[in-house]
Computed example of a mutant assay.
Amino acid sequence: MAGVGSVDIELELIQWLQAKAAPGVVVRDEVDNQLLAELPTIQVQRLAAGGDDGFRLDRALVDVDVYHSTRGEAIALAAQVRGWLLTDLPGAVTAAAVFGRVSTASPPAVRPYENTALRRVGATYQIYSHPVS
């Protein structure tokens, strides 16, 4: 049996979201200097928070930021991502993880970003998962 937290939640969510997103949408864990040329981008980062149930179930808090060329497009894509996470992710199984309950800890909202040529909308989700047996 794998230890608690042995699911790389960022990697699993990146791969899962890439399969859901339209062609041309970049899904990644870090942004770089090429961000403006790679819009739209979905960024997935686990926060240093959460916990476990003392057995195998990991409770991760995950920030999902959407970067797009306009505020409206960023809001729309963030809403679509939220829908996928809340309705399609619970019960999903990947090669490495089984996903359980998903909830919104902080709903999508415009977040500041230093580059005014793009817009950022972010949300925080609480995601329960455990390794595949």
Rank of each mutant, 00 (worst) to 15 (best):
V4I: 13
G5E: 06
D8M: 06
L13M: 10
Q15E: 13
L17K: 11
Q18G: 15
Q18Y: 01
A19D: 10
A21Q: 07
A21P: 10
G24T: 02
V25L: 13
V26F: 10
V26Q: 14
Q34N: 07
Q34R: 09
L36A: 14
A37N: 11
E38M: 13
Q43R: 09
V44H: 02
Q45D: 01
L47G: 05
G50V: 13
D53K: 00
D53T: 06
D58V: 00
L61K: 05
V62M: 00
S69C: 06
S69M: 05
S69T: 08
T70L: 04
R71E: 11
I75W: 13
L77F: 15
R82I: 07
R82A: 14
L86T: 15
T87E: 08
L89Q: 07
L89P: 12
P90T: 11
T94S: 15
A95R: 13
G100V: 01
R101Y: 05
V102N: 03
A105V: 15
S106N: 09
S106R: 02
P108R: 00
V110K: 07
P112G: 15
A117S: 11
L118I: 04
V121A: 06
Q126R: 10
Y128V: 13
Y128M: 09
Y128K: 10
S129N: 12
H130Y: 15
P131D: 15
S133C: 09
